[in-house]
Design a protein around this nucleic acid. Structure first.
Length: 211
DNA sequence: TCATTAACACGGG
DNA sequence: CCCGTGTTAATGA
């Protein structure tokens, strides 16, 4: 396990901390689509993502969802950070977007390390900052942008995290993530195809020129 | 004006 | 046949 940790976190953490993570962390692999955290769930461990992509979503009381952001290797779930210190429950839902590998750290350790390791403190604060920025971006997107811009942003983002211009996704999937209806997504995608910015296929969207 | 919902036809697997 | 897609009509914000 030390290898996986080193590959993604050695530039962030001192050796001593890496050793502790290796000794204490539990390696966990999940498949695409697996639910990692439910809304309302009590959390006892925080995940360090070493491979794959995790989708973080906000749910309303009826289970309708809105995508907040993606996590990739070398990152952690900011929500766990605040939940772990108290006995608060998760305000978000986390689902594996791709097959992923995580190292689970018990909450007691994550608190203990805050006092013990400067690099850990920095990591936690940076994570908070990054996630907050992503959430702000999402708020901007919802508050100030029209659906066509949100869709473009979504496609760019997805392409970036998958490192592929061909995105395997259905119109309905996108509609759920952006919290809108499939009719709208189909129509907007069709428009983008007409202007040669994307190429549509069943179960996939190929990005041609989306800035 | 634009989103949502329901409904329908088409076509590929 | 089932699912994803493309479209339309009615309705509402």
């Amino acid at each position: 396990m030390l290898e996986e940790i080193k590959n993604n976190y050695s530039h962030l953490f001192e050796d001593e901390l890496l050793q502790e993570i290796d000794a204490i962390g539990i390696l966990k692999t999940v498949s695409a689509g697996d639910e990692l955290i439910r809304t309302g769930q009590y959390l006892s461990a925080m995940p360090l993502l070493v491979d794959g992509v995790i989708k973080i979503m906000r749910e309303d009381e009826d289970g309708f969802e809105l995508m907040l952001y993606f996590l990739e290797k070398g990152e952690t779930c900011a929500m766990t950070l605040s939940c772990c210190t108290g006995s608060a429950v998760s305000e978000i839902r986390a689902v594996a977007e791709t097959d992923s590998t995580l190292v689970m750290i018990p909450v007691e350790k994550m608190e203990e390390w805050l006092g013990k390791y400067k690099s850990w403190r920095n990591f936690i604060f940076d994570s908070y900052h990054q996630r907050l920025m992503e959430v702000l971006e999402t708020i901007d997107s919802i508050a100030f942008k029209k659906m066509d811009e949100r869709l473009l942003e979504y496609l760019r983002n997805k392409s970036k995290y998958y490192n592929d211009s061909e995105i395997k996704v259905t119109h309905q999937d996108i509609a759920f993530d952006l919290h809108t209806s499939r009719v709208v997504i189909s129509r907007l995608l069709k428009q983008l195809e007409k202007t040669n910015r994307i190429k549509l296929n069943r179960n996939s969207v190929k990005l041609i020129d989306i800035g």
